[in-house]
Nucleic acid binder design. Sequence first.
DNA 1: GCTTGACTTGAAACGCATTTCATTCTTTAC
DNA 2: GTAAAGAATGAAATGCGTTTCAAGTCAAGC
Lengths: 323, 323
Amino acid sequence: MANIKDVARMAGVSIATVSRVLNDHPYVAKDKQEKVMAVMKELNYSVNGNAVKLSRGKTNTIGVIVPYNNNSCFDELINGILRKAHELHYQVLLLPSYYENVIESSYLTLLKKKTIDGILLTSHTLHHEQIQTLSEWGKIVCCEACPVPHIPSVYPDRYAAYIEVFNHLKNKGYEHIHFTSGRDVQSSPSTRLRIQAYQEIISEDYENQFFDQCFDYQEGKRAGEVMFQKPIIPDAIFTNGDEVAAGIIAAAQSLGYSYPRDFEIIGEENTPLSEILGFPSVNYHMTSIGEQAVSLLLSEENARIPVRHSLVIRAKAGASAPS
Amino acid sequence: MANIKDVARMAGVSIATVSRVLNDHPYVAKDKQEKVMAVMKELNYSVNGNAVKLSRGKTNTIGVIVPYNNNSCFDELINGILRKAHELHYQVLLLPSYYENVIESSYLTLLKKKTIDGILLTSHTLHHEQIQTLSEWGKIVCCEACPVPHIPSVYPDRYAAYIEVFNHLKNKGYEHIHFTSGRDVQSSPSTRLRIQAYQEIISEDYENQFFDQCFDYQEGKRAGEVMFQKPIIPDAIFTNGDEVAAGIIAAAQSLGYSYPRDFEIIGEENTPLSEILGFPSVNYHMTSIGEQAVSLLLSEENARIPVRHSLVIRAKAGASAPS
DNA sequence: GCTTGACTTGAAACGCATTTCATTCTTTAC
DNA sequence: GTAAAGAATGAAATGCGTTTCAAGTCAAGC
């Protein structure tokens, strides 16, 4: 295929001039510019993007490390990232980690290899020191709260959300408030925050009101079956995710209880599911977080930006299926 | 930063030898290999990925063009793509088109620029001739049925699914079968197939049983409100998506009908929503399609592979919310 | 003892565009 | 009219590996 040399030769100019035409440099005589463009068309020429990247030392590509791509929360985040990146003329490499340490760190070396200009890190398992070390090779922005000071981040202010939810439930007069989480207290900072907020607002003693390992509908259902067979059943539940909430509602129904007659429930992520089943949900504005994270990644700044949630309360009406 | 030249000099060998060490070439003396590796570690050396790509003329990256990233169907597809790509040591560039022609074709030129090795095309608006033209520059695989013969594809056999669904409903004795779609008959091949299947199995006359422009819950609700206020209400509905089905169920409930007491409904994509509300759904196995599409893209073959769906019937039990 | 094949190694060509520096030619300004 | 500023252009250096080709070493086979 034709390269810049061929174009230069055929147009009777130097490769520097062709390069100027390619990059809209102002100092090119009009006739030469036209000649060069004509030759490029004739030869069906196209720049070699890899040569450009090598030469410029810049790829206009950012990497996004996600554990999986099947979670509505990441969906929104990635949508925001894609939009902003597109706006700023960057492309997005999607890097699934499957929560594997080896894979995650291999992605961070892409910075060293100069294959990407920066990395957006979402949920991860890498230790912060490792991230810190690897961040010498390029900018890394976290999309979660990050305990290490030097790493810039844009993150949902989860603690504030938890506090608000528990306050909301308390003020509404609920007395038996339960809550759920996904990963256990050891491995998940957000689980720790949940417990902390519960203790702050509701009660020091949380263990009997708490269920971890809830990741989807089925696990929500199992948790619900336990909750609604206790001597004292919950009158309000704060779940980590709308699917889990749906599972709990289903379990409650199969045990003769009904939402919202017998209890309140609040989900997370504000997916269509909470709209459909008509329960409140916390919206963390992940799209906005994605957009801001890209902006931060491509800027010179080093900020840590908490993003405010909103609690979406809805008129209770929706689809239903029989128990 | 150190480059291959520096390493070669410090190790007292030629750059060819360093390159051999980098690529595990067998013909390198053990002592030199060790020396080179030691120097690489000392200099904290890393290959420049862009130089490698330029030199090899290969990027080990594929592009995936999607309209958006907020659809469970694309989620699954992309998950399959990511998994297979990772397995084959390829990376995935996520290219959102927003259904814009200009953006789509700009992505196809990435092949010409040699920035990616191949493209996976999902739902798109480009004309097939354009795709054909641009496919001269690299392999393109469609993840949808593609009417142009020369473009390889891996796609859900939608027509077969539609036929099965309508047959299923007919055999169950339903007499007033309605169906919905998203994009209108002009712009969507799958809408045309839906109608064709309806006409084949149920009745030539479809217009009063058909609703297009149904994309999400709210639009499903609106369609449902129309359906369930007709003189003859449907006793079975085949929707294009679980969210739409949920909207119809909600509308029916608000009009005094109840699922499954008064009607059957079948969704598409087999999302958690259909599981939760307990209605059947068509599973197109998008994850598998994604995996196969990557395999095909990276192979020498040029096949067109229809993938068989499955109709997921479930015990009707799930969550519900009040009307 | 000589041929043959396997192993090692380096020089140099190749992939391709960007960018700096020097140079030449025009203008503009005073 | 001449100096200074601006415009236009090319040579050459730069970014960095991969790969081919030629040449040399060494051991095994006959």
